[in-house]
Computed example of a mutant assay.
Amino acid sequence: MRRAGFTLVELMVSMALGMLVLLLGVAGLRAVGEGYGRGTDGVASEREARAILTQAAEDLSKAVRGREMVFGGSTDAWRKDRLGFLCLQPDDAQSDSERVGDLCAVVYYIKDLKIGRDTVRCLLRGFRGSDETFEALRTGNESSLFVGEPADEPVAFGVLAFKVEPSVRGADGEWEDWQQTADPDWVGPDAVRLVLVVARRELVAKLRDTGAWDNSPLLGDPDDAEFSDQLETYEIFQPFGHDS
């Protein structure tokens, strides 16, 4: 009587099928893990960006119109604009040693910072207390308020671009670009549009120095930033400040 059993060929086919199923399972788990990582990375980036833009919107809502304003200034493909203005701040926003009034200055700008062995492009916020602000105004040196200082705080990491686009309401009620040269009385804009383009974590890890942040082909086309799966784009349109 013949014994029932598997031939060597049948065993090899079974092992091959089992291996294939195992590989497909591993690939599926990897895809799920990568998708989860991208999702959590995106959530963290959005939370950070929204917090930054909320802070900027709050600063803009307290802005004081006048000649002491800086908007834009960048001509790079990936815009690295500067935003600076005077604003009214409550007492608790200043230290006792720096407070002589409520008129302060705020500046936002992009700067490359060395973090570990890599260079990371960051958005910084500089805050100038009322004592420094009044001294600069008294001496006619208000431009110094909007120059970066070592104590300025990085508020966002992996920032590829920061766009500052001031606007004014035209006679027909439509929004138009505010032009400093066309505003001799320095009334200032009615609102400011801020756009923040942030690189995802996996892209940041590949941009190791300033040259890569400026010219890497991984960045793609600036005009297509909002469609890139490696970048996140956020924006606000905020009324500009106090008339007093």
Rank of each mutant, 00 (worst) to 15 (best):
R50E: 04
E149D: 11
D190I: 01
D221L: 06
E174F: 09
T133K: 06
G148H: 01
D118S: 15
G37K: 15
M15G: 02
V198S: 13
A136F: 09
G37R: 14
V43S: 00
A51W: 01
S14G: 15
D102L: 00
A93G: 05
Q230S: 11
L23K: 05
R193V: 04
G140L: 03
C122I: 05
L20Q: 12
D185E: 11
P154Y: 02
V164R: 09
G66P: 04
L60S: 04
S144N: 12
D96L: 13
R50A: 03
R30M: 13
A161R: 04
K114R: 13
G158W: 00
E226L: 09
I115Q: 08
V159E: 04
P239V: 06
T133H: 04
K163E: 14
G241F: 02
D112Q: 07
P90Y: 02
R193W: 08
F146E: 05
E34F: 14
G25V: 10
V187W: 08
F227L: 04
R30L: 15
G28Y: 05
D92S: 09
D229W: 05
E142M: 08
A171W: 07
G148A: 05
E235S: 14
F85W: 06
V168Q: 12
Q179V: 10
V64S: 07
D185V: 06
D112S: 07
Q94R: 04
S143M: 11
A136G: 04
D183Q: 03
Q230K: 10
R2W: 06
Q179R: 10
S45C: 13
Q89W: 10
C104W: 01
F85C: 07
A182W: 07
W78C: 01
M15T: 10
R117G: 12
F127M: 00
E142C: 07
P184C: 07
E153Y: 01
V106N: 00
L86P: 02
L11F: 13
F237V: 07
G39S: 11
L145H: 05
G25Q: 09
P90Q: 10
T210A: 10
T75A: 11
R65D: 02
P222T: 09
E135A: 12
G126M: 01
P150C: 02
M15R: 09
D131R: 14
G37Q: 14
G220A: 06
L86W: 00
R2V: 12
G116M: 08
F146Y: 04
S144G: 14
D91P: 02
S45M: 13
